[in-house]
Design a protein around this nucleic acid. Structure first.
Lengths: 148, 148
DNA sequence: GAAAAGTAGACAGTTTGCTTGTCTAAATAG
DNA sequence: CTATTTAGACAAGCAAACTGTCTACTTTTC
């Protein structure tokens, strides 16, 4: 029941994710976006989908509306996000990425791709494919919370 | 260069790690340890190694000595950790796990093993073995910081 | 062996990211 | 038209991190 390898797999997973986050963070900063945190990047993903509101961002990140509002305000002040009135609901605002926001999203994707590319190089195409498949199979879709 | 699958692999990795953290946290709480956070668990790993000081914990977790001191104080108050004088250095204290601390560590390992066991069940032995191997191959040893 | 420099950890204050609670204005259901 | 829900703002509070400063002890250097 208590397969000894399982704990090792767990720590490897956590360690790998932590290193990936660090690599993305570092790569994004190196590309000129030093004032964004990982959670901001995840918010970008949600916002770039188009037509997201503050409440949507909150639900996506698994935080309260208030926390999401604060996060969006920061991104607005820093020039990553704009708000325009919702055409159908005068209470709400629709969020959108500025050019800088889109550039930052691209930087994050590039940094992530670079890091993952190293995995591919280390594993070779076949084993990398297995990894890719296995991840897809065990992960459940859900919000990308900046947990722990 | 910009392999489209890479970003997906990255988000799957992050998502999987977040879900794993949640599962461990939930399993540990269900086993009777509701007052510990993930970072505490990582501190236990460091402390259970034996002969760790507060500064060691701080370095291991990638936080300042002050933050580590506060964390250790909480764990002491909650009965997970003890301090004894350092035999060679009157300034320092050596940390150790109490029985409760050891039990909590075991609970975390069990919860993690349970979560990973689900992966094994979903993948089958062969594909799980590939995952295990691939993780081992790409992860670099390092401190298990509660990053992001 | 004494003076200088470094280190372990405590104490105090500040920042930050999140929380709950309350409020408004607008939308929707009856 | 009234009652309920909802989007988001405002305020206060909490907790985990940070920096800065201090004391006591060790280690290094002369």
């Amino acid at each position: 029941m208590d397969a000894p390898g399982n704990w090792l797999v767990a720590t490897d997973t956590l360690l790998l994710a932590a290193q990936l986050v660090d690599a993305i963070q570092e790569g994004v900063a190196r590309r000129g976006f030093a004032d964004v945190r990982p959670a901001h990047g995840f918010a970008f993903v949600c916002i770039s989908g188009g037509d997201a509101t503050i409440a949507d961002v909150g639900e996506y990140l698994g935080i309260t509306k208030q926390a999401a509002a604060q996060l969006v305000r920061q991104l607005e002040e820093r020039g990553y996000v704009t708000r325009r009135p919702h055409p159908l609901d005068a209470r709400a605002s629709l969020l959108g990425l500025t050019a800088r926001g889109a550039a930052c999203t691209r930087a994050a994707e590039e940094a992530a791709a670079d890091a993952v590319e190293r995995w591919r190089a280390q594993l070779g195409a076949a084993r990398f494919g297995h990894l890719q498949q296995a991840l897809r199979a065990v992960v459940r879709p859900g919000p990308l919370r900046p947990a722990w």
